[in-house]
């Protein structure tokens, strides 16, 4: 019998550089992992609840391919599809939506121009706007976590908790929180920081950075109070914990821990 509980979401993330999927470790040392359209379909068929594609292309020449990559990826994808990385203006967002994305994820552009959040939400709805926050706190408590932009290279002086609240007030529909301290390490999500953000906003929080095994997902959905969790390398390359059916295996383990999941999928 259906319960009152909304399923927690497992989101597969494709980091794309000039039209190819790559995954960085701490934003460096990229490895090629394949074609985004093909990987998105594979992840959706395997049970991923959503697909996020982040364009990390450094060159403007490479970025021109983004809209075409989005169109190709969206074409046969029938789960929610988010695109981030190339969105700096309302017009950029409109092009991405026109190519078939359901949501855009905005990071640096929202920090430098917070009004952009309201502009996109006003035209396409709050459900279409995700604010991505890259945060680092080192050994400090969660409320000292600072927002970084430009792929983690530039400190902003903004506190992550205050920025998440502001983004919500301006019309963001979800927060995608990436722990820079954990990203690519495989030692687990930053549950303390995730719980702090989730406790300070009413909109859903997607946790990212640090997933290495199923227990890490259990922790981020319980102690971390996350509504969704995002991971990339754990799904693309497999590892000692999962076989080729990574998402389905992960969901089965989470269900065994009493965490509501979309199942069967």
């Amino acid at each position: 019998m259906p319960s009152e509980r909304l399923a927690k979401r497992i989101i597969a993330c494709l980091d794309v550089d000039a039209g190819r999927v790559v995954k960085g470790v701490k934003f460096q040392q990229l490895r090629d992992a394949g074609d985004p359209a093909e990987l998105a379909r594979v992840h959706a068929a395997a049970g991923a609840d959503e697909i996020v594609m982040l364009d990390i292309t450094a060159t403007s020449e490479g970025r021109k391919t983004l809209v075409e990559t989005v169109r190709r990826t969206a074409h046969d994808l029938f789960v929610p599809f988010t695109v981030g990385g190339g969105v700096r203006t309302l017009e950029d967002a409109a092009r991405i939506f026109d190519a078939g994305a359901d949501k855009v994820s905005i990071n640096s552009a929202a920090v430098s121009n917070p009004a952009l959040i309201g502009e996109i939400a006003g035209r396409f709805g709050s459900q279409a706007v995700i604010i991505a926050i890259d945060a680092r706190r080192g050994a400090g408590p969660a409320d000292t976590a600072e927002v970084f932009v430009a792929g983690g290279r530039t400190a902003t002086g903004k506190k992550a908790l205050a920025w998440a609240r502001e983004a919500e007030e301006r019309g963001a529909g979800e927060i995608l929180l990436t722990s820079m301290d954990r990203d690519g390490t495989g030692i687990g999500f930053d549950c303390e920081l995730t719980a702090a953000i989730a406790g300070s906003v009413a909109i859903p929080v997607i946790a990212s950075g640090g997933a290495g095994n199923a227990q890490h997902f259990v922790e981020v959905f319980t102690a971390g109070k996350a509504d969704a969790a995002l991971a990339a390398s754990i799904f693309h390359f497999g590892n000692q914990h999962f076989g080729t059916n990574a998402v389905a295996e992960l969901k089965q383990i989470l269900l065994d821990h009493g965490i509501p999941m979309r199942w069967p999928c």
């Binding site: 259906p2 319960s3 927690k8 909109i203 509504d227 979309r262």
Partner: peptide, 10 residues
């Protein structure tokens, strides 16, 4: 929590 975002059962 509102909005109700995600997968739920019918």
């Amino acid at each position: 929590k509102s909005p109700h975002v995600g997968w739920n059962q019918i």
